[in-house]
Each structure stands twice: as C-alpha cells, then as structure tokens.
Amino acid sequence: MARQISGFNFKHIFIFIFSSLVYALCQMLLSNIVMQDDLWRKFAVQLTAHYVVVVVMCAADYNLLLFLNKHFPYSKNVLYRIIADLVGLTLICFALLWIFDLMLYKILLISAAGLPPFTTKFALGILTNAPIMLVFELIHYFRSEQKAIADSEKAKREVLLFQHETLKAQINPHFLFNSLNVLSSLIYLNPKNANKFTKALSRSYRYVLSLNQQPAVTVAEEMEALDSYIFLMQMRFENAFTFKVHQSGGIENNKIVPLTMQLLMENVFKHNIATEEAPLDIQITIGNEHIIVENQVRPSSNADKSGIGLKYLKKQYQLYGKEIAVEHTGNQFIVKVPYIEP
C-alpha cells in the first residue's frame, strides 16, 4: 500500500509531478517553435519557468473547479457551466500574465526588448491552460460518475436492509406472541372476530412479503394495508385508543416508503400507555405535501426499545433527499412525512 501523509498519496503526488514536468517540457517546445527561439539556450531556466507556470495554473484551475462545482454545477445548467469555465480560464490567464509581467519588468527589471507582446503570451497562456482545465473536468466527471454508481449501490443495499429489518420487526416473537394470544382468546370468546383477526393478520404479512421489489408505494396502498394493522390493534387494545384519518382528495397516488404508516403506528403503541379509561388519541392527516401523524404523549415506563423505529424511517427518506419532521409540542407528538414522488 502506498504511504500517505496528511491524506496525500505519494503515488498521486509522483504522478502529478511527473506529468506536469512532461507537460511543461511540451509547452516549452511549443513556445520555442512559435517564437523561433533557440531551445538549448538557457534550457534549465526555460524549463523551470514553464514548470512554475504549469504548476501555478494547475493550482488556479483546481480552485476554479471547486468554485464552479459549488456555484455552477453541470446538473443545473451545462451551458452556464461551459461559459463559466471559459470566463474562469480567461481571468486566470490574464491575472497570471499580469503578475509575471509585474515581476519581470517592475521587480526584476528585465528588459522587454525581444520578448513577445502581451497578446501573444496571452494566447499561449490560454493554449497552455485549456488542456489542464479539461483534464481536471474529465477527472471530476469520472469521479462523480463512480460516486453516483457507489451511492446508487449503497441506496439499494439500504433499501434491502430496511426491508429485511422491517420483516424481522413484523415476525419478532413479541408481535407473534401478542397476535396469537389475542387470536387464542377470540377463538373462544368471539369466533367471528377470530376469523376476521386471522384474515387481517394474513393481509398484513402478505403486504410485507410483497414489498421485496417495491422501493415506493402509493398512499392508497399504504393506507389499505394500515387498515389491517389497525384492526389487529383494535382487537388487542379494544377501546383503549381512538383512530381518525383526515384525507384530501386527489393525492392517493402520491408515493411514500413502504410500511411508513405501520411503523409510525408501532412507535405510538410501543412508547405510550393506552387504556379504556383514558383512550389514546391518534390522528392521521393526508395533506397535499405531507402525511401528518399525531398522537397524545403518555410515556410508557417499560417501552420496548427494539425494532426499526423512527430513525430507520428518517434514514430511508434521506436516501430520496427528503426529511421527516418531528415535533414534540407539550402533550402531542407530531411526525410529518413528505412524499418521495408526488
């Protein structure tokens, strides 16, 4: 493995020094051909001067690239980026030539006799600097493509992990034990409801298993699956909570991350106390920009801290560049879920 100091790889430093030296030599040859000068006259001085110019241009171009990536990225407007590149190259060449002329003629007091005019040097400067900027742009482009591919693969792995964790949460022993315990009681007390409970449990699991190839689902699909889950909770908690949905029309096809609503409901029941004497109020508002889940805060002292929870949902929405907003206003806990696809 190549040795590194302060994050710089010796291999990359060597490649830069060697390539910039070769490029400076090529530019020196071109300059001597254009100016019809003697190549071997003060060869070392000429090569050193050209090498300094190339290195300074590399530093200037690199900083220009960082500035353009921040303020004029290709993703916004390709034409503006190209124009910004050309303007930046022009300003860099003009500024460097002005500084070098100042050093040569004003500080070192070298005579301008026999030296090319400013316009000729400026043209040579543009000719020298353009390939450097082009190489930087190509390197940035290919690195961006590699990063995009890596991010895409990471996002796929995150989605698969989310689905796996979600499935584990659905089949964890506590959930199964509670569901089967309720079902066992219903079989003797209310066979009709036992049959409904079994079908709802089956629909809930079927929905989870159907999500293997679905990174997003519609609001309508999610709410339909939530109905089965809420029915299971009603059979378990009976009159210990109230549940209402407020919905605007025309947004049923908006998309969200699968099982968002069910996981939020799990959090509500997991972290709060619900009794028939003081029912827990839960409301869902499906708006134009967000789905808002709101519940009363009645902390449970022995809340189960396992499972996916809100932090996993936040991570999933961040993969789409979205943020889940969480508000804790006194005795109310509010979660605002954005749509990932309107």
Rank of each mutant, 00 (worst) to 15 (best):
K42A: 14
I284E: 00
F197G: 07
F67M: 14
E145R: 15
Q27G: 15
N295Y: 01
S179D: 13
S111F: 04
H328E: 15
K11P: 02
F142K: 08
N69M: 09
S111I: 02
K168W: 07
Y312V: 00
L68Y: 01
Y188D: 05
W40Q: 11
M133S: 03
F237V: 03
Y51S: 08
D38V: 14
L68M: 08
Q318N: 14
E222Y: 03
Y51D: 09
Y339H: 06
F333Q: 03
R81L: 04
Y229P: 01
L226N: 05
V34M: 15
A240V: 04
L104K: 11
V182W: 00
H271R: 06
M233G: 02
V268F: 11
F18E: 05
A150F: 05
D85N: 12
N77G: 09
L209F: 14
I171F: 11
I230E: 01
Y141P: 00
L25G: 12
L65Q: 13
T275S: 13
A2C: 02
E327A: 08
S300E: 04
H164S: 12
G88M: 05
T242H: 12
S248I: 15
V53I: 11
Q318H: 14
I292V: 15
L124E: 12
K76N: 14
L21Y: 14
L167M: 08
N193Q: 10
I187D: 01
R203K: 06
N331Q: 11
M1V: 01
V87W: 00
H174S: 12
Q283G: 11
F333P: 07
L167P: 03
E224V: 04
L64Y: 05
L104W: 12
P258H: 12
L280Q: 03
Y23D: 09
Q262R: 02
C93P: 04
L66I: 09
M28V: 04
S179F: 00
L115H: 12
N267R: 11
Q27E: 14
T242L: 07
Y74Q: 06
D281T: 14
F72T: 06
E165K: 12
K322S: 02
L30V: 15
E276F: 07
V257G: 09
T120W: 06
D85W: 13
V55S: 01
Q262K: 03
R143G: 01
A44R: 09
I149R: 06
T120Q: 10
C58M: 14
F72K: 11
D85G: 05
H290N: 13
L29F: 15
L183Q: 07
F162S: 04
M1R: 04
V257M: 13
K11M: 07
E158W: 12
K156R: 10
S228Y: 01
L66K: 13
L280R: 05
W40K: 03
A113T: 10
V55F: 04
V135R: 05
M103F: 15
A113Y: 10
Y80V: 10
T242C: 06
S204E: 08
L180C: 03
D227N: 04
E341D: 08
K147A: 09
E266A: 12
A278C: 11
L176Y: 00
V257N: 05
K11T: 14
Q332V: 13
A200T: 10
K270P: 08
Q247V: 05
L209I: 12
V135W: 09
Y62S: 09
D227A: 06
V53S: 13
V257S: 11
Q163S: 05
K76Y: 10
Y205N: 07
S6C: 08
N331H: 11
T120E: 10
A60R: 03
I149F: 06
T242K: 13
N172H: 02
C93M: 07
I107N: 07
